[in-house]
């Protein structure tokens, strides 16, 4: 008996986690998936109506705004954070004095919650008292900067705040990658007379491919989950012009008592994440094998 116990201890230790994982992750995903096929509104109601909720979702202009916003946000956020993070990492990798201090400064926003970031930027971008007034006081009297209250520009304020928060992290990823590049390689290239720019463009950047990959996956993940930043910075407004899918899901599930639509939107978000994740994991596994 004791022997059996001893032999199976690893399984026994892992059993609670396994059970909770099956129920609270996979079970709940199935539950949400099923719920999205019912006519539930305020309360779960197990009367199945096929894809009706999805049809309602995709006929909802607010959902389209949220999805469009996500694409704008994803593309700009990832692009700017990648370029900025990479450039800062390359510059920081030039045997800079006080590198540690500078790195600390670039990265501290990552320790702050999106709610705090949103609150801070809401004040900085405040039309009337924020940046607009600062520039006016500098003498540029006609300067206007009121993206926060313009429905076609509000989503870009989310990009600004998110880049501020996350680009330092991208910098750290690239810096770690650059530190892993073999010194002899760069020396050899320099002896061959390659210019610094050519060296980086033709030799070092291609070596950073895995870092690009994981940075993109992580940033995508942050972007799809960005719920709190929108909530704190714009509240999804003006109107619902800066909503992201996560905010849509929250509003419909918990404020509007339309949990069927909410569940459908959550499932679409899951599929979105999977569409990015599966090719990533696939290529990772393939790389490990070869």
């Amino acid at each position: 008996m004791f022997n059996f116990l001893e032999k199976n201890l690893p399984k026994i230790v892992l059993a609670p986690t396994t059970i909770v994982m099956i129920v609270c992750m996979y079970g709940f995903i199935v539950w949400t998936g099923l719920l999205s096929l019912t006519k539930s509104r305020m309360m779960p109601q197990w009367e199945f109506v096929g894809l009706d909720q999805y049809v309602r979702l995709f006929n909802n202009p607010r959902w389209h705004v949220a999805v469009d916003n996500l694409f704008i946000f994803l593309i700009l956020f990832i692009l700017i954070a990648l370029v900025l993070g990479l450039l800062l990492a390359i510059f920081l990798d030039q045997k800079i004095r006080n590198e540690g201090v500078i790195r600390t400064i670039y990265l501290y926003p990552m320790a702050i919650s999106f709610i705090v970031t949103g609150t801070a930027w809401k004040w900085i971008l405040n039309p009337g008292l924020g940046i607009e007034k600062l520039v006016n006081d500098l003498g540029f009297v006609g300067f206007e900067f009121r993206w926060l209250v313009e429905s076609d520009m509000a989503i870009y304020t989310i990009v600004i705040a998110a880049v501020w928060q996350s680009s330092g992290f991208v910098m750290a990823l690239f810096l770690a990658g650059l530190r892993g590049v073999d010194d002899n390689l760069t020396k050899a290239a320099k002896i061959d007379g390659a210019s610094t720019i050519r060296l980086y463009w033709h030799i070092i950047l291609p070596l950073m491919r895995p870092v690009f990959f994981s940075a993109i996956v992580i940033l995508t993940h942050i972007a799809i989950k960005s719920f709190d930043l929108v909530q704190a910075l714009t509240g999804g407004g003006p109107g619902y012009s800066s909503d992201l899918p996560a905010n849509f899901m929250y509003t419909y599930s918990f404020n509007r008592a339309q949990i069927g639509v909410g569940a459908a939107s959550a499932m679409i978000m899951l599929f979105g994440v999977l569409a990015v994740l599966i090719p990533y994991l696939y290529s990772e596994l393939r790389e490990k094998k070869t």
Partner: peptide
Amino acid sequence: PFQVILLP
């Protein structure tokens, strides 16, 4: 995305 487990 945690949205998918919020309701259950």
